[in-house]
């Protein structure tokens, strides 16, 4: 891709003369420093809770120390903890697999659409779910998937099938999670690919057509390679999210019957911390989670830099 429009109109010259320090620029960073200090760094001291025998009334400063006991307890004694870790990774991977390929396929299809009104309408429609909160979507899903009078089961019954209890069974719940997640995100995901597709040189298509390539061949040999770097980049950048299986979605959809397959780290941390007031334990788990997340983040950004030459920072 090229830079913004103006860039193509004016010749870009890199000047080599030495640049003087601009104090006004520095001053403009002051609010940012204050913000980081207050809202990002000041709360970090709270991580000590994870090493404490933390009690609300004694607070962060006066609670007794427990060393690594909280961590030891979670990893070795806490029942079902490893199942939750397994759920988290599995759900995240499933979502990644489908949520990642769907936008690519849809973009490729949209790319083939020549009627621009149709294309714009479809694009407008598929973005919509991205903007609706999970609180609301969960309400909609619950009513649509209701086994007795939900819309989906009506359709299944219409075709002579037996109603399926989507939200209450361990075998279908993950399916609902994945499908609804893909449904919410696939339209939005196409944006980045659609932009990349506009950057492909039309001459390539012309040449391929002259060589007698049909549309499928053109898609595979020109379109796909054209957006491959973006695909790679997107893939790499989604690795750190492997421990985020989607708190808002699962929290609003799950029920006790499917804890076995649906309980993930974030929902667990919430229940433990807020509902059971186990602040020290939940902080400890949160800490482990963010350590792993950070390592993955750093690794994937490094890979992105090496593999596709993309520098995030």
């Amino acid at each position: 891709m090229t830079s913004a429009g103006a860039g193509t109109l004016l010749p870009v010259k890199r000047h080599k003369k030495s640049v003087r320090t601009d104090y006004m620029l520095c001053a403009m960073l002051i609010p940012g420093f204050i913000y980081l200090g207050i809202f990002e760094f000041a709360p970090l001291f709270g991580l000590v809770i994870g090493f404490q025998d933390f009690k609300l009334s004694t607070g962060v400063f006066n609670s007794g120390w427990k060393g690594l006991d909280n961590f030891r307890y979670i990893f070795t004694m806490y029942p079902g903890f490893w199942n939750i870790v397994k759920n988290t990774v599995e759900i995240a991977l499933l979502k990644l697999c489908f949520g990642f390929t769907a936008p690519i396929l849809v973009s490729l299809m949209l790319h083939e659409v020549t009627n621009s009104t149709y294309k714009r309408t479809i694009q407008t429609l598929v973005y919509i779910p991205h903007f609706v909160s999970w609180v609301i979507l969960a309400g909609i899903l619950r009513s649509m998937l209701d086994p007795d009078n939900g819309l989906i089961n009506h359709i299944i019954k219409l075709f002579g099938g037996a109603p399926v209890y989507f939200l209450g069974s361990n075998s279908t719940f993950r399916g609902v999670l994945v499908v609804s997640d893909v449904w919410k995100g696939f339209g939005w995901g196409t944006i980045i690919y659609m932009a990349a597709l506009t950057g492909i040189d039309p001459a390539l298509y012309e040449a391929a057509t002259i060589d007698g390539a049909n549309r499928l061949q053109r898609a595979v040999h020109i379109t796909l390679p054209g957006i491959l770097p973006i695909i790679m980049l997107n893939l790499i950048l989604s690795i750190p999210g492997i421990l985020n299986a989607g708190f808002d979605q699962i929290f609003n959809l799950y029920n006790e019957r499917v804890y076995k397959t649906a309980d993930v780290l974030d929902t667990f941390i919430y229940r433990l911390g807020i509902l059971d007031s186990q602040y020290a334990l939940s902080t400890a788990i949160g800490m482990v989670k963010s350590v792993i997340g950070s390592v993955l983040l750093v690794c994937s950004y490094k890979i992105a830099e090496k593999a596709v030459g993309y520098k995030v920072f």
Binding site: P79, G168, K260, R271, S277
Partner: peptide, 24 residues
């Protein structure tokens, strides 16, 4: 008690539901 009870109750209820439905 408080530390463990929440998880135990949850486990208990989940079991009841699963046992009745035969999902597990």
């Amino acid at each position: 008690y408080d530390r463990l009870w929440g998880a135990l109750t949850q486990y208990e209820n989940t079991f009841y539901v699963n046992y009745i439905c035969g999902t597990e």
